[in-house]
Simulated assay, not measured.
Amino acid sequence: MPTLAKQLSNFTNSLPGLEKTLRLFQAIAQICAVLVVNTVYASRWGTIRSQLALGRRYLRLFKFLECFERAYAVLDQGYRAASTAQYDRADFAMTTMEVGKWSMLGMYFLLENFTILDAMGVWKTTWSLDVLIEAHKLWFYALCLSLISGLWSLFASAVEQVEKRKKRRKNRGAACEEKKKREVEYEKGIHLSDHEHEHEHKRGVSTGESDYDSDSSSISDSDFHSDNEKSDHEKKVKMEEKDRDLSNIDVHDVHNIPETIPTTTTTSLAAASAAAYASILTHLVVDSCDLLIPASVVGWTNAGQLTIGVTMLLTTVLTSRDVWAKVNKPS
């Protein structure tokens, strides 16, 4: 297990981790710029925020290539899956939303790059603000598609859980039916064996024979009773075989039929489902909070700088956990 310093080093030395770190500092600087009363210090915090935002833009200079590549990969995967029988309208809708989301994000990063010289103060233009506003509109649309996709996945996950519970109840009912069936067969076999024994005993009493005088009678009249002895011997052999078959039915086996799915399998499936459910909820919260940023730039909402700073801080912490776990994953 690496130390905390080593994990922090792995996080900040990775490109996603460095971007999240700068975003965290930017959110803190924005909050301080609003809360500080002194105008001089507020201006300094505002400058820090602007420089950190510009630094983050350097890191995502070619981010649009990755977004377009993901859009193409999703489209290609959907095209290949469309020829299978399992591909339905729900899969088509999910593919369309994913392609639209990554395409719009790619266009956002690409348009943002056209205004980077203006942000650096190298080449001031009159159209950079308009291009930046249109870029933030695309970011807003991409976040909306991501929200719809997340809600769709959440609904599909809930439906899948309901189906799994129904299947478990069905398996439990089938196990109970099998248990009752084996119990009935066991009781029926015992009753049938007792009935045959009683029938043979009554037959011996009615003919005046017993287990002890059958040998003496066969010695005196061997020729007369040879056929009867052979028949009696065959019946006894059959009765012994039936008793052995009944003895093979263990009472403990009858009463110990499993009624549920094994605990390990159920636990692992529940843990995986809970992790997927938590991941979807986290992304929904992050996308909902991030909507304030492009909406405020475009002018569609009156969210203040303090609100945007707090939401940026929250989403940065939530999304950094996955990056932290990924870069510090043991090899």
Rank of each mutant, 00 (worst) to 15 (best):
M1C: 12
M1S: 13
L4D: 07
F11Q: 05
N13K: 10
L15T: 12
P16Q: 01
E19Q: 09
K20R: 15
Q30C: 06
V37L: 05
T39W: 03
S43F: 00
I48T: 14
L54R: 05
L59Y: 12
L59W: 10
F62L: 15
K63D: 04
F64V: 03
F64I: 02
E69D: 14
V74K: 07
L75C: 08
Q77Y: 01
G78A: 13
Y79M: 14
Y79T: 15
R80N: 13
A81D: 12
Y87A: 01
M97G: 10
V99T: 08
G106I: 04
Y108E: 08
Y108V: 05
L110Y: 15
L111K: 03
L111F: 01
F114G: 01
M120W: 06
W123F: 07
W123V: 01
K124W: 01
T125E: 02
V131R: 08
V131T: 10
L143F: 09
L143R: 06
C144L: 15
S146D: 13
L147K: 08
W152K: 00
L154P: 03
V159R: 03
Q161V: 12
Q161Y: 12
Q161R: 12
K164P: 13
K166S: 09
K167P: 04
R169L: 14
G173Q: 14
A175F: 07
C176W: 13
K181A: 08
E185K: 11
E185H: 08
Y186Q: 05
E187F: 04
I190L: 10
E196W: 11
E198K: 09
E198F: 01
K202P: 00
S206V: 10
T207R: 11
G208T: 01
G208Y: 04
G208N: 03
E209M: 15
D211A: 09
D213W: 06
S214N: 05
S214G: 01
S216N: 13
S216R: 14
S216T: 13
I219H: 13
I219L: 12
D223C: 01
S231Y: 13
E234R: 09
K235Y: 00
K235W: 00
K238P: 08
K238R: 11
E241V: 09
R244H: 12
R244T: 03
D245G: 03
D245E: 14
N248A: 13
D250N: 09
V254R: 03
S268D: 06
A274K: 10
A276W: 03
A278G: 00
I280N: 13
I280G: 00
L281I: 14
V285Y: 01
S296K: 15
G299D: 09
W300G: 06
T301V: 15
L306Y: 11
G309H: 06
V310W: 05
M312R: 11
T315K: 07
L318T: 04
R321E: 03
A325K: 14
V327E: 06
N328K: 02
S331Q: 02
